[in-house]
């Protein structure tokens, strides 16, 4: 085969090879991504770029994706207050923005009125030592930020997008949250009295993106 023939053939081959490779890329990628066999890869996140757990106000050995009932405050009166701490652990391999928000709806009798009357302050701080538990012993004294400062419980955002951000680096990180609440007067005897018999229940969500 002469060099000329070789060159001519090569020029004919180049488009075929190039387009074939492009097509292969599409077919291969699409097949892997969209084939029906990939439905609900619930357990396929071994690459695990982001992961969160919280200790529910208990020690680090209690860390779970879902915990229950940090706050179970009963017998509130006007002027009641309290605070509890909870530690969120991140084991993601990339940095992200960690945010605390509540569920969209409050449940319970007359819940919205009570959620509107309750005030919360949320403080957050990276902690390198042991988990900070519900009694807040060992809550960091430095590097404390205040995502929410004395806002109505109902005014705590209910979506990630609206929630106050807290930058979190990659790697194993722990963030201690101190959540203080109070029930001050609404300024109206009638409204305050109407809070009797009410309960507000919500879930607290931490999400990192």
């Amino acid at each position: 085969m002469s060099r000329t023939t070789r060159a001519r053939a090569a020029r004919a081959i180049a488009p075929v090879a190039g387009l074939l490779a492009a097509g292969l890329l599409v077919w291969q990628g699409s097949y892997a991504a969209f084939s029906a066999s990939t439905v609900n890869q619930g357990d396929s996140w071994a690459t695990g770029q982001l992961a969160l757990q919280n200790n529910g106000g208990n020690g680090s050995s209690y860390a779970q994706t879902t915990t229950t009932g940090l706050f179970g405050e009963t017998n509130l009166v006007i002027g009641s207050s309290g605070q509890k701490c909870i530690t969120v652990s991140s084991t993601g391999s990339i940095a992200g923005s960690l945010r605390l928000y509540r569920d969209a709806a409050f449940t319970g009798t007359n819940a919205n009125a009570l959620a509107g009357a309750l005030r919360v302050t949320v403080e957050a701080a990276n902690t390198s030592g042991a988990d900070v538990s519900a009694n807040c012993t060992g809550f960091p004294t430095t590097g404390v930020s205040t995502p929410y400062n004395n806002v109505a419980l109902s005014a705590v955002p209910s979506t990630y997008a609206a929630a106050a951000p807290l930058a979190l680096a990659a790697g194993n990180q722990k963030v201690a949250y101190r959540i203080s609440w109070s029930l001050p007067t609404t300024g109206s005897n009638t409204t305050d009295s109407a809070l009797q018999g009410s309960t507000a229940t919500t879930n607290l969500n931490w999400e990192i993106q």
């Binding site: 940090l70 405050e73 009963t74 009570l114």
Partner: peptide, 19 residues
């Protein structure tokens, strides 16, 4: 295709009795 992870603490409640 945003990375995200969540953790939650469920059923936090505050209740006011009939005084």
């Amino acid at each position: 295709a945003a990375f995200a992870a969540t953790t939650r603490n469920n059923a936090n409640s505050w209740s006011v009795p009939n005084w």
